[in-house]
């Protein structure tokens, strides 16, 4: 952070002499401490999962959902400033509904992302607003099959096979890189998502977490975005934790190698 104090980071929409927009970079910092979110696109659907950090035992278990539905076929998960995430989702819903009211058809995922990219980018252009403090992962199924996108505070927005953000993103990404997305089936992906979140939780180990997983699949949800049923979630959790010992050993080995 060598540029702190030079004054170019005090207002949104201002470039520094070397062409950076610091407020956007700082917004990214807000994301980097949040609970880990991931998305997996497989051949027959999309899975979203999030590590929900439990700050108090007074919180009601199973409530305070973090994954939201934009339209029947599209879901969103995000890391960062949660209220900003709700703002983002509300906009996404408005876009989806306005598209439908004009074209009498559900919006396609790429088109929605196009619109949302423009919206988020707008919040980097004026000093009267601040950029979104979230990175969102959007997944859904449309006529062209499953889609997965990730959108950043800068408004940049890319398609992914596997996406991760939040505190444990590095660990999650290295796990996601191991998957074979051409062959992966959605039920397997749900389990893997649970496992990756479990592994990514290493970065936040002092706190408990709750696992939330949703999916969109032609076969299992009729193309709708829904939370996975309880039995599948339990199965996934078990899978995530069962080879804990094994994993720890592997990791230790890995650590040694790094050193």
């Amino acid at each position: 952070m060598t540029s702190i104090g030079t004054g170019y980071d005090l207002s949104n929409s201002v470039f520094s002499p070397d062409g950076r927009n610091f407020q956007v970079e700082y917004a990214m910092k807000a994301v980097e401490n949040g609970g880990t979110s991931i998305g997996i696109k497989c051949k027959d659907g999309v899975v979203l999962a999030v590590e929900k950090i439990i700050n108090s035992k007074l919180l009601v278990p199973g409530k305070n959902k973090r994954i939201q539905t934009v339209d029947r076929h599209i879901g969103v998960v995000y890391s960062g400033l949660l209220p900003d995430g709700r703002h983002f989702v509300n906009r996404a819903r408005d876009e989806a509904q306005s598209f439908k009211s004009i074209y009498k058809n559900s919006i396609s995922v790429p088109h929605l992302m196009d619109r949302l990219g423009i919206y988020v980018q707008n919040y980097t252009c004026y000093n009267s607003v601040r950029p979104f403090g979230i990175v969102s992962i959007v997944g859904g199924i449309d006529d062209n099959g499953p889609h997965l996108y990730m959108i950043e505070p800068s408004g940049s927005c890319w398609g992914y096979s596997g996406a991760a953000t939040g505190k444990g993103r590095q660990l999650a990404k290295s796990e996601l890189e191991k998957l074979n997305y051409e062959e992966l089936e959605i039920k397997e992906a749900v389990k893997l998502a649970a496992k990756i979140i479990h592994l990514a939780h290493e970065d936040n180990k002092d706190k408990d977490y709750e696992l939330e997983i949703s999916w969109v699949s032609k076969e299992f949800t009729k193309g709708r975005h829904e939370f996975v049923p309880d039995d599948l979630l339990e199965e996934a959790k078990k899978f995530a934790e069962e080879d804990d010992d094994e994993e720890e050993e592997e990791e230790e080995e890995g650590d040694e190698m790094q050193e």
């Binding site: 409530k63 959902k65 939201q68 539905t69 339209d71 029947r72 819903r93 509904q97 439908k100 009211s101 009498k104």
Partner: peptide, 16 residues
């Protein structure tokens, strides 16, 4: 279409 919109906002969004 109005009813579809109603159903979406009442049952799909943030359904508790």
């Amino acid at each position: 279409r109005i009813l579809d919109e109603l159903e979406t906002s009442e049952e799909v969004y943030d359904n508790d």
